[in-house]
Design a protein around this nucleic acid. Structure first.
Lengths: 223, 223, 223, 223
DNA sequence: AATGAATGAGTTTTCATTCAT
DNA sequence: TATGAATGAAAACTCATTCAT
């Protein structure tokens, strides 16, 4: 597992170089993954770099070859998670043209499939736990990730209201109310199962959507 | 478990040491309050006992007069918060007889007034952040606080379903979906304002309730 | 148990005064006794004044009423023990006129009865353990207690040699060799039973004396 | 139990890190030596780890690289001393066939040369001083070291009694009486010179042996 | 590039000592 | 006198960071 062990068997120059190149590039992501897991599990202060290094299969010194400090690693972990989340969001965003209800449904399920059920969900817990200790990160996250997600929902809601599919309502507040169950679902995976002991994520999300849809529907409009 | 229980040898004249006694009685709760603020703000590991002591206006040594370790203080802070939350919940619980919708409305608003808007809300963030580091606390919290709150909501929902006021639904999942926005509201006060930048808590809760009520209503049932 | 409690009931001046006087005088010896036990058991540094006070049945503050510091208490404990040991030795010393062997036997047994088997024996362990930390105490002890005990033995040995009862020998070395088993006996009572697991002190001392006597006897002199 | 056992990953070139390796291998014994000196001098509680580290020429943190706690260092110091003492005893044990008196003489002198006069003697003082604070250590020492030493002496005494060289006597008590002067000699080197101010260890031991031999001899048996 | 031994500043914890009552 | 709450200096212990190899 120690990359040092490859040095002896590097007979052909080109092969060796590419292997090492790949390793070098790969190392940070292994470190980021290890960092994410541990930071999410224990929080920033309680995570020891020793453990991060061990989990990534390198020595503590190596970690400092790639990140100048614990805080730098932490920020990189978050940023990395945010970029991925953003990309995931972007994909889902891609021109959805059906009725607003369908769009909404896709957004919720898409979030679960591409974020909520993946390691990215851990970033949310991290941000919530450490926001006060790293205000710049919180700010950054709010502007880059949250506001983007909110924009998606806002679009869907407004489209529905415009088309008469949804009744008029306090859009911003509604966005929050829609997001909250998603976040809690994500969070609960990394701390105690606050919500939904025996409730499956899918059932939970379906109920959420169902309630939501009926809640959004104009009075008197029902199938 | 509360250190307030140290009242053994009150043999000396009651008037004489009254000032000191008053101090001594007040100390634990002063320390708990200081601890709550800092733990919520920074998390367990990042909170320095020095700071807790200073905020409570005592020396570090004094802290150890009342709590044998940092962890003990932390647990006492949580426990204290839970007891208070439980008492607050109990009060609200007291015989509500109106229609289910009204009961639900009261529960949401009552939660905000007696928990969400107070320091007790911080305990939620604490639990979420530290659940993995203190599994016993998480277990205890889930069984003592959460399950109690869920029972309240379950009662209201089932009453509404039985009376035909609400349509039949996945009750447990619905409970989660109802609680989530409350928790997020509480949490957002102590970390980044994930939800509701410019949205007031009251507007937020009102929107939540409105959406909810319509979502719960049987199909075709509308004023 | 709190002397403060006597204040109210001090109706007759004389009675109250004498009670209090007796208490005041008695307190130091209670403290000294508590100190001796704990210092012997744990050593100077590992003994907490809290424990000493508690064992003596007073508060920690009271201790400081009688001794200005932990070290002062420690020295007082030793001194107190030494004075008592000295007095005990003095008594035994008093004109013994029989044959040297008998004198020697009496010295050994007397030591056991008046020192070795009492709390005073603990002082020896204390001195041995803390001599390096309290050189003045060690010096004082050596000059005041040890040299006195050695003088007793020297007297007995020289008397025996002069009378031809004992053969000539290296008196000072012999004194050490005679004393050592006594000290070890004392010490073993307060630490692990280095010598004499199942051997009773009396049997041990008798064997010591027997070996000694035969060892001292001139060659060819035997019953 | 020895921390020297850390030799896992010696995959790197043997020559390259040789200096560091040599250091790392030497560290534990350097620390043990420093610990022994200070613990013997001051006792467990009064010894500062800072001082131990400084004496070993390393920082406090380094100490924790090899021993997880002060107590662990202490136990390792004792254990290390005991192992060495045991090895030394083993050597002396090697088949001695001459008369019992000669065997006895060799045991006493051998003890002095290989234990009493070395740093190992300090372990005895340590055990005596700290036995009450570390009962497991005391038990271990009694079973592993003391009982072994006693067995050696028992063998010599019984051989002498069987051969008629020595008179019958209370063997166990005699063992104690024989050991005591040795222990006191060892102890006196590390605390006050209780015995033998001006008496040289050799003269002291010679006197001890002489007295002993005459004391053991059957009545009427003399050259 | 990678290692891991070493460091020391920073934290938790202890306890002799003080002092208002 | 007696108390015991409060203190703070000192000690044990942790861990991010450095650097020789």
């Amino acid at each position: 597992m120690h990359p040092t062990a490859h040095h002896e068997s590097s007979s052909t120059a080109s092969g060796a170089a590419s292997t090492r190149r790949r390793r070098k590039d790969a190392r940070p992501s292994e470190l980021l993954a290890a960092g994410l897991e541990l930071f999410v599990d224990r929080g920033f202060a309680a995570t020891r770099l020793d453990d991060v290094a061990r989990r990534a299969g390198v020595s503590k010194g190596t970690l400092y070859l790639y990140f100048p400090s614990k805080e730098a690693l932490f920020k990189a972990v978050i940023e990395d998670g945010m970029v991925a989340a953003l990309l995931a969001a972007e994909e889902r965003m891609a021109a959805h043209q059906g009725p607003a209800a369908e769009l909404l449904h896709d957004l919720l399920l898409g979030w679960w499939q591409q974020i909520g059920s993946t390691a990215l969900a851990g970033v949310s817990k991290l941000i919530i736990s450490e926001a006060r200790n790293f205000p710049e990160i919180a700010d950054y996250y709010r502007e880059r990730v949250i506001s983007r997600g909110r924009a998606l929902l806002r679009q869907a809601l407004e489209r529905g209201i415009d088309s008469g599919e949804f009744r008029p309502l306090h859009v911003e507040a509604a966005i929050d109310v829609i997001i909250a169950p998603l976040l809690m679902l994500a969070i609960s995976r990394f701390s105690l199962r606050l919500c939904g002991h025996e409730v499956s994520p899918e059932a939970y999300l379906e109920t959420h959507f169902e309630l939501l849809l009926r809640g959004l529907r104009p009075a008197g409009d029902h199938p």
